[in-house]
């Protein structure tokens, strides 16, 4: 069983999103990037699969910036192989284009399963796993919280719906899965191990041309107007607690003894 995990880096929300307010364009070069947290979940679920049933895990990223550390980290965590798709790409590359490049690569390979984060904070033009599935014309399920091997190249999934409903799904591979959460929290890769891996293992580089396909001509980003912003309660803990009690009283929410 060969499992591909698609990884991408997204702007670090802890730091500031750098926006040119006038043009509404993001200053991609001025932001710091982190692996998308849902992709971390997808990788973890793939590694659990590997431990359970000996799947071979390949982590793949499109070189939209420095993705090497992300790939070495995947190796340090237990991925068998990592691939970087290179080309004339940068951090502004759209999901659609990344999905094109990724699906072209996956199609040539012999993967039974593609896992990726169900979403990312920046997917304006669609989520990677869904787009890749569409381009490959493979069945696809999103919001998956568990992936297991069944018999006869079958894969078992748990898909979640709102209200806490869960479906158990069986699908014959190949399949694309959008992972919401792994069964266990993602494991840690120590800096030393990542460094050691970086010294001893090479990233396979595959070059690709610039993908065509629909791209939106002119996306403008704006900061949301703080329309319905909360009224901030100032003061120390005691002052705040007093004020909240007052608010509750005003709203008739104090429990009568």
């Amino acid at each position: 069983m060969r499992v591909a995990v698609l990884l991408k880096a997204v702007p670090d929300l802890v730091e500031e999103l750098v926006l040119d307010e006038e043009s509404g364009s993001l200053q991609y070069d001025e932001m710091s990037y982190v692996p998308s947290e849902w992709d971390d979940q997808a990788l973890e679920e793939a590694l659990i699969l590997k431990e359970e049933s000996g799947a071979q895990v390949t982590a793949i990223a499109v070189s939209t910036g420095d993705v090497d550390t992300m790939l070495f980290t995947a190796l340090a965590k237990g991925a068998d192989h990592v691939v970087k798709i290179t080309g004339d790409f940068d951090a502004s590359m759209s999901n659609w284009q990344q999905a094109r490049v990724l699906s072209d690569y996956v199609r040539e390979q012999d993967f039974d399963m593609v896992l990726s984060g169900v979403q990312a904070i920046d997917d304006v033009d669609g989520q990677i796993p869904g787009l890749v599935a569409g381009f490959l014309n493979w069945p696809h399920a999103s919001v998956v919280t568990e992936v297991r091997m069944g018999g006869d190249s079958k894969v078992l999934l748990r898909q979640e719906y709102s209200g806490g409903l869960v479906a158990e799904i069986e699908v014959e591979s190949p399949v694309v899965i959008g992972v919401q959460a792994a069964r266990k929290p993602p494991r840690y890769a120590s800096v030393a191990k990542v460094r050691q891996v970086a010294k001893s293992v090479a990233i396979e580089e595959v070059s690709a041309g610039a993908p065509a396909g629909p791209a939106f001509a002119d996306i403008q980003f704006v900061r949301p107007v703080a329309a319905g912003r909360a009224e901030m309660i100032e003061g120390d803990v005691d002052a705040v607690a007093d004020r909240i009690v007052q608010i509750l009283a005003d709203h008739n929410l104090l429990r009568r003894a």
Binding site: W96, S103, G126, L131, A133, F216
Partner: peptide
């Protein structure tokens, strides 16, 4: 944009080559 939206939106976009705007 529920689980169904995440399932069908991008899949349809990819298969029918129609641009998608999420969220």
């Amino acid at each position: 944009n529920t689980t169904m939206g995440l399932d069908l939106g991008a899949g349809l976009a990819g298969r029918n080559n129609i641009p998608l705007i999420a969220y």
